[in-house]
Design a protein around this nucleic acid. Structure first.
Length: 206
DNA sequence: CGCCAGATCCACT
DNA sequence: GTGGATCTGGCGG
């Protein structure tokens, strides 16, 4: 089993942590089973100044975790039906987080299938922030947990970094009413599909 | 394929 | 009351 990413990894600004998370392995332990996937797409949300960041208006009951220490999970509910998974970055009182937007499956396929039967088998069954939380049974019950703790049911392990020229950056998705320059900030990072498959194979065969 | 609407609930400058 | 860091199915080309 690979070493876990520790708090010092996350205790940096989100735009630094986000690209570094590409190629890491996200692991969810559910009923004693390992569900895991290669992180293939992320977004960064950084600070009060970032008008797309949930922490922009200060600390509230919903976003409180964002103002705490790095390395904790921020799981929130949106659009009336979806849970989205983030990891808190940077220091105390700086609201910063990386949103996990897509994974390439590695372990626990049967379990994840049972949680996402609707699309299992399609190429698109895990490429969305609310799809992967459904596949890994990540809900508000995990909001605020420490992903750096030894006994955590959710954590990240060191994986394989993608080749830099196989990583695409672009503006963040789904923040359409956010003013510039935040709307166009290139804070989304994505591994090209072929490279993601290559890395996943390399990890599975290792 | 692409585009669009409907689903459905919670937090809130 | 409003508007989401979204997903899905249906309809059109």
């Amino acid at each position: 089993m690979n070493p876990r990413l520790d708090r010092s990894f996350f205790d940096r600004p989100a735009p630094v942590v986000a690209p570094a998370l590409l190629g890491a392995v996200m692991v969810r332990e559910l009923d004693g089973v390992r569900l895991s996937g290669l992180v293939t797409e992320v977004e960064a949300y950084q600070g009060r100044e970032d008008l797309a960041c949930h922490g922009r208006h200060g600390k509230t009951a919903r976003n409180a975790v964002m103002f705490g220490k790095a390395g904790y999970a921020y799981v929130y509910f949106t659009y009336g039906m979806h849970w989205l998974m983030n990891v808190i970055c940077d220091g105390l009182n700086i609201p910063a987080a990386v949103l996990i937007r897509a994974i390439e499956p590695l372990e626990g396929l049967e379990k994840m299938r049972s949680l996402r039967e609707r699309d299992f088998g399609k190429a698109s069954w895990l490429n969305g922030p609310a799809k992967l939380t459904q596949a890994m049974a990540i809900t508000g019950a995990l909001d605020g947990i420490d992903v750096c703790a030894e006994d955590s049911l959710l954590w990240f392990e060191q994986g394989i970094s993608p080749e830099p020229d196989q990583v695409q950056t672009s503006p963040r998705i789904g923040i359409n009413t956010t003013p510039e320059p935040w709307l166009s900030m290139p804070w989304r990072w994505k591994i090209e599909q072929n490279e993601a498959l290559r890395l996943a194979r390399a990890i599975i065969e290792a």
